[in-house]
Design a binder for these strands. Structure first.
Lengths: 203, 203
DNA sequence: ACGGTAGGGGCACCGGGTGCCACGGGCAAC
DNA sequence: GTTGCCCGTGGCACCCGGTGCCCCTACCGT
């Protein structure tokens, strides 16, 4: 439900709930990577995490959700970044900057991110599920664009910008995964650049 | 598997296979629209179509697939249209034209199309599943762009164009469904126009 | 009359997901 | 200390989507 912070009152509280969650997510990630998403059963993940099938569903919600970590927090961060962006910077630039900063992971976190994204972009079931997660991102971006343009979040341009930028971000992730590009931020800038220039040379 | 045409040798051949398929798809569409995708069980659809659960899976493949009709044929048509497009017309223009022509339905087919798209864009499970179907479209478009640009279909620009144009098409469908736009073709042209111009006013 | 084949149905089974209840440990109030 | 509560957890039963396997039946050509 809520994003728990370990920094409450200085002492890391060792929340049992978050502890089992971490164990489950780590076990799921390893097993999925090793054997493939479909081949691994919940029971196997639960066993590897030292818990039960029932607890798995209670703590991570579902098989596909085990891969996403705290994605709600990620979306919240993106929303905050967009809220804080100045009125003078162009809309597309602001969206790009928010995407770049929201995905500015510490070097130590990159391996896990690679593992997550490889699964999400490769495994069909996860690829399908991702649409539901990305819909949250789209809503946030569409809302921002709508505010900046004085339009309804459900009208064409805000939604188009949201889905197109998200498509660009996804493509950037793919390029980053295949190693064709130095960094994730660079891939994002390249993709957004192409988008903002209307694909020069293709018109 | 294959797209059967009733126009072989003048007499409508009454293919039993295609007949039950049509009954199942119609029953599924009606029940999903009336009660919601999750609420309807396969057994109910099979009963309404006058057949069995087992036959349902054999003929339409799965619950989500029952909504899509002959989408493979749709993708094939799109590929053919792109193949036939001239070398002189700009890439983005060719993709737009192919999308418009592939989605140029007869007026009588529009109600069913509305019903299908409303379900696909509204029901979460179908929204998720759609990603797998759209991936086929993306592969076709990315392949075309790659051919025109002399790049690999897996490199950034072809994939970006494919996902971005498909995002634009989806947004156009949403706008068409909400009635904010006169026709589907018009919505597609508007969305592609915004995309090709790099969202003027937002940079 | 014969065998082949294809569409269909029945059945058992697997795995994801949920509701319900029961257990056990920590923790406050008495 | 004892009581009572809450919360994380586990076990169980159940539903439903999906698949493999076998059998039935109708239609086909010979």
């Amino acid at each position: 439900m809520s994003v728990l912070r370990e920094s409450d009152r200085g002492v890391p509280r060792e929340d049992p709930r978050e502890d089992t969650r971490a164990r489950i997510e780590q076990a799921a990630l390893e097993l999925f990577t090793a054997a493939g998403f479909e081949q691994v059963t919940i029971e196997e993940i639960a066993a590897a995490a030292g818990t039960s099938r029932r607890t798995f569903f209670r703590t991570v919600g579902g098989k596909a959700d085990a891969v996403w970590g705290d994605f709600d927090g990620h979306v919240d961060r993106l929303a905050t970044l967009l809220d804080r962006s100045g009125e003078d910077v162009p809309v597309l630039t602001a969206v790009l900057a928010a995407y770049v900063e929201a995905n500015d992971y510490a070097p130590g976190d990159l391996p896990v991110l690679r593992q997550r994204m490889r699964l999400i972009l490769t495994e069909p079931a996860l690829q399908a599920h991702s649409q539901l997660r990305y819909a949250d991102v789209d809503r946030v971006v569409a809302g921002y664009v709508a505010r900046r343009c004085g339009q309804s979040p459900t009208s064409l341009v805000p939604r188009l910008v949201a889905t197109a930028t998200r498509a660009a971000a996804t493509t950037a992730f793919e390029a980053w995964l295949s190693g064709d590009v130095p960094s994730l931020a660079e891939a994002l800038r390249t993709a957004f650049g192409q988008l903002a220039e209307g694909f020069p040379g293709l018109r």
